[in-house]
Design a protein around this nucleic acid. Sequence first.
DNA 1: GTTCCGATTTTCT
DNA 2: GAAAATCGGAACA
Length: 188
Amino acid sequence: MVVVARDLLGKVLVRASGRTLLGGRIVEAEAYRGSDDPASHAYGGMTERNAVMFGEVGHAYVYFTYGMHYCLNVSAGEGGTPGAVLLRAVEPLMGISVMRRRRHVIGDLELTNGPAKLTLAFGIKRSLNGVDMTKPGRLCIADAEVKGNRPDIEATARIGITRGLDKQWRFFVKNSPYVSKMAKVRKS
DNA sequence: GTTCCGATTTTCT
DNA sequence: GAAAATCGGAACA
């Protein structure tokens, strides 16, 4: 499942809302597991919220946190074990003007360089929780035509959590300007 | 330039 | 009742 997080980098997140099509290349993601990962929502058993992590692979797990933010995951459990991959940042490809309007920022670099930013830019809300992202629909993951160049991928500890810091399950494209910048500052 | 702190609500103990 | 997979603005150097 940690491997899945790595594989998701470079793929394209596609969001179809009404007649608007939004898309972005995934440049940053984190892996979360189950009972062996204290930082995971699935740690300690299934609840109403994290049920998607225990279900089928490739479904969207959207949750609300910090009173004002959504985060988007892709369920990626294997062999009946719970798991998910948190999408932390994407590189905007389609519908950039729509994202800019939603985010109220000028620079394209800041449209989607964070888990909550990307959900806002893509108009993701809890009604999308549980949708199958392997099939075309309101929300899905498209295979990217990685033009031969294997992106330079780096792994570090995950961000914004208080437990499981020893696991280096955060992956991002090293040379992309679209990854979240608070990464190094976020420590202690 | 970096570091700190508040907002706000869903979910779990 | 407390904590949380965050962000952005304010404060300080």
